[in-house]
Every structure is written in structure tokens, then in C-alpha cells.
Design a protein around this nucleic acid. Structure first.
Length: 119
DNA sequence: TGTATGACCCTGA
DNA sequence: CTCAGGGCCATAC
């Protein structure tokens, strides 16, 4: 196994800690690993990561929540497949994790209860 | 040593 | 919404 830098190790650790059904941006992962502004290092680390590992690489998206691979490529389809399998919706090429969705739903319910059905 | 490339990001127009 | 400009870091040539 090639020896990865400490930075790359931290990055991969953060990625592996992303809960199922949730997604993070490259920049967010970098910041979470204590490397703000080093989004590029995240992509590099993911490429270096051994295939076959349990690393949930598919939960890492762009800052705008879109898949980083060229649309239609094999990797793109693979990532989309894995995300859908975890309940992550893909609307207009952009991902919406379940947590945000349910939060928004309960938020709407609360708003309706407090303010009434119409605005 | 210097340039080019990438699973990127932010700001401003 | 798009586009351009600058920043970022590791690798390859």
C-alpha cells in the first residue's frame, strides 16, 4: 500500500465518517479535515483511495451539490446509482439528502400549524 | 526549474 | 443563470 500523506489520511477519515443518506461538498470535507481552501486535495485523495475499500466516496459532491464526474460517464452513473440507493434524491442533476428533505417537511408542517394553511 | 492538468471553490460582473 | 479571474495542492512531463 502506498503511504498517503497525513492530510490525505484526515480527508479520507472525514469521508468515511459521512453518515448514510447525507452528502458533503469537497470544500466542506476539506474544512472538516482542518484544511480550509484545499478542496482540490480532496479530489486527489479520493482518486488515490484504493477501490474496494469501504470508503463512501459517492457521498462527496461539488459545492453546488452536483456530481463531479462528466455527466453520462461510467463513474457518474455509478455514483448516481449509489446515491439513489441511499435515498438521496437527484433533482436537475443536483442532490438533496434525506435529512434536509425531512427537516424541510417538518419545518413546513410547523409553519402551517403556527401560521395557518395560507400565507 | 517551469508548465499543464485535475472527481474543486469563491467572488464579482 | 452564465463567464471570467484568482486561489489552491500534488503529480506528470
Amino acid at each position: 500500500m502506498p503511504h498517503l500523506s497525513a492530510n490525505a489520511e484526515r480527508i479520507l477519515a472525514v469521508v468515511s465518517a459521512i453518515p448514510c443518506g447525507q452528502v458533503l461538498g469537497y470544500g466542506e470535507v476539506a474544512a472538516c479535515a482542518g484544511l480550509p481552501g484545499r478542496a482540490r486535495l480532496v479530489s486527489w485523495a479520493l482518486k488515490q483511495a484504493p477501490p474496494g475499500s469501504d470508503l463512501p466516496w459517492h457521498r462527496v459532491l461539488r459545492a453546488n451539490r452536483s456530481i463531479a464526474f462528466p455527466a453520462g460517464s461510467a463513474a457518474y452513473r455509478e455514483q448516481r446509482k449509489r446515491l439513489l440507493a441511499e435515498g438521496v434524491k437527484l433533482v436537475n442533476g443536483k442532490a438533496v439528502d434525506r435529512r434536509t428533505d425531512s427537516e424541510r417537511r417538518s419545518e413546513n408542517d410547523l409553519d402551517r400549524a403556527l401560521w395557518g394553511p395560507e400565507s
